[in-house]
Design a protein around this nucleic acid. Structure first.
Lengths: 343, 343
DNA sequence: AAATAGCACTCAACATCAGGGAGTGCTAGT
DNA sequence: ACTAGCACTCCCTGATGTTGAGTGCTATTT
């Protein structure tokens, strides 16, 4: 499959990919010769281009138009042609500053980060917060709200707070709530949230519990608090991709926006990206979002102080400025990890 | 300015507005006669239409096209022509069910409500959560997270929880934190969050505080927790308006999406809508979002159990199905208020 | 044999033009 | 006071022609 490519072919392919990324228009032999000052005639370039087309690296929208890179070409480009730009000092500063300024807990930082990613890349920035359930339990607290309402507040190690309003038939005194809290804090000490949940379910079926109404209720309430869906995902800069010429077509635009309507779905798709370390690049149909075609995804994982892992990245058209976006995603992931580690 | 309109003129205007709402296309004298079975010839209708145009209620995009209602016409239509549809039993059921199912605290309900509004109206649903700062303080709690990090958790009467991670130079023991909590709970009892904030600032300058380092720190931390921006606004169903033919134009679409990018801005604009009771209708340039033209806004306030007030509504094109959307917004606001009152 | 120049060919894009039709305004007749 | 009739306007559609960027092939040069 992977035919050997001569240096010249590679040069030309690179030129075409980069031209196309820059202009969004099919690039012809003429433009390549002109813009890249290769010591070759257009005819020669045409020959090479014909080869590349045969190899499935280029297509032409119609006979008398230039060529457009295929996904395979982008893949090749990303794997072995692209010269990654350095993240500039200014960009670094911006990322750091934004991170600092957010400062309202983990989620605040992550939300701001998705903004930053979007504004630096000029595409959509996304951040998937680390799953709450894989974080380590830190503290639970019950606060009496009404006669039959209790607010359960659950804090995990990375400082994320989940709260759940729970109704119950019985009425609790404040001291009941404290007793319950102590008991449960003991019970879940050092476990992850999902382990804690399992432990609670076990405990609920213990014999002694059948007679301790109070504790049984406490367990029930905690179970509810602990079983939060609450995985957060931040998508920012959707309006930005409207500037991309490929989305001038209303139909395509709808596709993209539809895809981002239900974040639940999105979350499931993105989970696949979290398996590997380092920057991951998904081009077009490789991307888990493939339903809405023509979209590429560049992601990297980050870790929190409590060793849970989240995902951040950029979504844009396949025709994306890989050379600058890849380093930005990489740098941002490292930086966020570092920032969170300080916590 | 408000010239008397004959019954016939009003009938015709109503017909035109409704036709245009249904079809999004300039409506001519022919269609009016056909679709609404008026006992009039097209010529007569034409005369009337010419009058209406002169009054600034209609415009024609060009000589040989039909007429399109102006904002003024919509205003008139909404004020005195429209026959409001009843909210159907099914719709009511849906609203209630969605509300029930959400159930994860105030914000959960509101988020779901914005979804519901969007799906029932087929436009964008928006909900502005009641401002946290005007709610009544209920409880504050400090939880030790790291050696120099404390998580301050602030609960208000309607069950909303704000949490803020605070760093400090001093190290606190758990019992310190409890003392602080007790003191502050006492101090802010019965105040609204913004009153509480004022109280704290006063207290910080009290003479006795200058010597009680612990309490001074506690106040500082609380001040941070209390000064949260955290006003939430939910916008749902943005993709839906892409189906509206007026937004087939990419430029206009961009406008709208841009406007919704920074929710902070949006919030400020919407505040204006919260002054009056009942359903508010803003047509085109009347709407606080007027920058992105051609948009109407229908809102109504709702109240929580602790008497703070929020806003909910629908955003759509000026050519909006007022007859069904107005009752939906009205009903939803009432229902949400009722649901929250039960808390 | 590899690179180039030359040339005929293709095809989207743009402009031009005519016919059709929906709609209008006006006038004269009921 | 309404309606019928009619000339007129102007968008829309489709047909037609032209242009130009780009191609593939072939003969020629290096």
């Amino acid at each position: 499959m992977d035919v050997e490519l001569s240096t010249r072919s590679r040069q030309i392919l690179e030129a075409i990919v980069e031209d196309y990324i820059a202009t969004a228009e099919p690039v012809g032999s003429g433009s390549v010769a002109r813009r890249h000052a290769l010591p070759l005639s257009t005819a020669t370039i045409r020959n090479v281009m014909a080869n590349l087309e045969e190899m499935g690296l280029l297509t032409s929208p119609h006979t008398s138009a230039g060529r457009v890179p295929t996904e395979k070409a982008y893949r090749l480009y990303v794997d072995s042609l692209v010269a990654l730009r350095q993240v500039s000092r200014d960009e670094k500063k911006l990322i750091i500053r934004r991170c600092r300024e957010a400062g309202a807990g983990l989620l605040g930082i992550l939300k701001e980060t998705s903004r930053t990613l979007s504004s630096l890349s000029n595409y959509m920035g996304i951040v998937v917060a680390p799953s709450f359930t894989s974080d380590v339990f830190r503290h639970i607290e019950f606060i009496r709200i009404g006669s039959h309402k209790v607010l359960a507040i659950l804090v995990s190690s990375n400082g994320t707070v989940q709260n759940r309003l729970v109704e119950s038939d019985t009425e609790f005194s404040q001291s009941d709530l404290i007793t319950m809290g102590n008991y449960l804090n003991e019970l879940m000490q050092g476990l992850t949230i999902s382990q804690a949940r399992k432990r609670i379910l076990e405990e609920m079926h213990t014999e002694k519990m059948q007679y301790d109404n109070l504790m049984l209720l406490a367990l029930r309430m905690t179970e509810q608090a602990v079983s939060g869906e609450g995985d957060e995902i931040f998508v920012e800069g959707q309006a930005r991709i409207l500037d991309q010429p490929e989305f001038n077509d209303v139909g395509r635009m709808k596709d993209v926006f539809r895809a981002f309507e239900q974040k639940g779905q999105l979350l499931k798709l993105l989970e696949r990206c979290m398996s590997a370390d380092g920057v991951q690049i998904y081009i077009g149909s490789e991307s888990p979002l493939s339903q809405s075609a023509g979209v590429s995804l560049i992601t990297s994982r980050f870790v929190t102080s409590s060793n849970t892992v989240g995902l951040l990245g950029v979504i844009g058209p396949t025709r994306m400025g890989y050379s600058s976006v890849i380093p930005i995603v990489d740098y941002t992931a490292r930086l966020v990890s570092r920032m969170l580690a300080e916590t």
